[in-house]
């Protein structure tokens, strides 16, 4: 039974402030465990987890696998290329077969928006969204917020600027909803062709849209540079990577407008010299590798709490 108000983690939109606080506070304790010589705890012993990755992933999948191992869960991996889906089996049938194997927790990534929610409706297992379409990537949002809180304690009133391809970014959406719930102010900056067109829901959450990066970074406490898929240029959404870098790249010059202590973040993998300059990604304000480390702790907390455990047990 979940120790959270929510039974699944399908996204950060609609997740209560209490649940977010519980996850982030629990993650702090798991983060400490990761610094111990023995990084393994028995918290999920006897729990079976399946990692259902219908989309390619390296770091998210490894992060989840590590989190599962650190919690002593039994985990199995599933990729669409090696599954019956390639033989025409429906998503629902695949899920029912997996469930018949008495799986407790399912981590799922899929290119289709809403697949985790679909599985949650048709399965008795706990579902954790590891990324669905351009909708949400709640664990990434949580680990980003966790990393920011390491520096700032609370996100209340903090300004977070997200730069880049917001229209196609599940990372951006999860950050927006999570940060809003925790009282941060979110600014979005990027080419109009890569921004959400219909902005009412975002603006209702206090999100500001600013196309000038200097203005968007003015007074920012943290900046998240989103990965720019190079296909966006082929798809006529951008003129050139050069223009993108000149007007939306997170560069030392652009950062002169942010606070001196601004946190530099990126969900990875990085296109150096496009969305972020190497001098910034590798600079003193960068917490990009901290995000990766924190990701394991946050995932441990999410799985642990959804499974009904408590970190201090």
């Amino acid at each position: 039974m979940s120790f959270l108000e929510t039974k699944h983690l399908l996204g950060l939109r609609g997740v209560s402030r209490n649940d977010l606080r519980t996850i982030l506070d629990t993650a702090k304790q798991f983060r400490e465990i990761l610094d111990r010589p023995v990084k393994k705890v028995p918290s999920l012993r006897g729990i079976t987890v399946v990692n259902l990755f219908f989309e390619n992933s390296t770091r998210t999948r490894i992060s989840f696998e590590l989190a599962e191992k650190r919690l002593s869960a039994d985990s199995v991996n599933f990729t669409s290329s090696s599954s019956s889906l390639t033989k025409g089996e429906s998503l629902l049938d695949t899920m029912k077969n997996i469930e018949a194997m008495k799986i407790d927790l399912v981590v799922v990534r899929h290119k289709g928006t809403g697949v985790p929610a679909f599985l949650a409706r048709h399965s008795g297992a706990i579902i954790i969204n590891a990324g669905d379409g351009a909708n949400e990537h709640p664990n990434q949002g949580l680990l980003d917020i966790f990393t920011m809180e390491q520096k700032y304690g609370s996100m209340e009133g903090r300004v977070v600027t997200i730069v880049g391809d917001v229209r196609h970014s599940r990372v951006a959406r999860s950050n927006i909803w999570g940060l809003h719930t925790l009282g941060a102010k979110v600014r979005l900056c990027g080419p109009a062709t890569l921004m959400p067109r219909n902005r009412n829901f975002f603006e209702a959450a206090g999100v500001e849209f600013i196309s000038d990066i200097h203005q968007a970074l003015d007074g920012a406490d943290a900046v998240i540079a989103l990965r720019l898929q190079k296909e966006r240029q082929e798809d006529s959404l951008l003129p050139t990577l050069r223009e993108y870098r000149n007007f939306f790249g997170v560069t030392s010059e652009a950062l002169q407008h942010a606070k001196p202590e601004v946190l530099i973040m990126h969900p990875g993998p990085i296109n150096r010299g496009v969305e972020i300059d190497s001098s910034v990604a590798d600079g003193p304000n960068s917490v990009i590798l901290d995000q990766v480390t924190n990701g394991v702790a946050v995932r441990m907390a999410v799985m642990y709490l959804l499974s009904g455990g408590r970190a201090d047990e």
Partner: peptide
């Protein structure tokens, strides 16, 4: 680019 209607020109620049 080239008024061809296929690739955006560098309008910001």
């Amino acid at each position: 680019v080239g008024h061809q209607g296929k690739a955006l020109a560098e309008m910001l620049e």
